[in-house]
């Protein structure tokens, strides 16, 4: 067993787990944070995306021990009690998610993108979502939502609609 302490959504949490435990299982099974999903378990689908030290990662491909002492942000850490994260609000308003299973991962990828690049082009957004599979939506409404949030941040005037 290894003892792992991670700073999850701003709160230090500790658990003792077998060394082969992935960060995903640590979050889901030890900390009851079931927002990150197990979709493929090999890094293809992105449903398990969380941010570690500010970078998005496949939590199914990281050992819990490798996250020891690091900052982990999950979907549960995006909203506060008072207010949704602007991305969550935009996704809700545009109906960007359908079955919703890919949603937490997509939102974390979008958040990681906007943190690094507040003014992404459509191509930047597509590139940022390349590691997140969605089988329902066709991505368009997600891309619109992310563009909308980027613009609302005052990054640039709205481009002419296509």
């Amino acid at each position: 067993m290894v003892t792992v302490t991670v700073n999850v959504n701003g709160e230090p949490r500790t658990a003792s787990v077998p060394p082969e435990t992935t960060l995903l299982r640590l979050l889901r099974e030890q900390f009851n944070l079931t927002g990150a999903k197990l979709g493929c378990d090999v890094g293809d689908c992105g449903a398990c995306t969380v941010m570690v030290d500010g970078k998005s990662v496949n939590s199914c491909l990281m050992l819990a021990g490798q996250a020891d002492g690091r900052d982990v942000l999950t979907i549960e850490g995006l909203a506060t009690l008072e207010r949704l994260h602007p991305l969550q609000e935009a996704f809700e308003q545009l109906g960007s998610l359908q079955c919703g299973f890919c949603g937490p991962g997509i939102l974390m990828s979008a958040k990681a993108l906007l943190d690094e690049n507040p003014d992404p082009s459509e191509q930047d957004i597509r590139d940022a979502l390349a590691g997140n599979l969605c089988r329902c939506t066709g991505y368009i409404k997600m891309i619109e939502a992310i563009q909308g949030v980027a613009r609302a941040d005052g990054a640039r005037p709205a481009p002419k609609s296509a």
Binding site: G46, S56, V57, N58, L61, S109, A130, G131
Partner: peptide, 9 residues
Amino acid sequence: IGAVQTRNL
């Protein structure tokens, strides 16, 4: 190579 998440790791 892969996507953002894979390239970060």
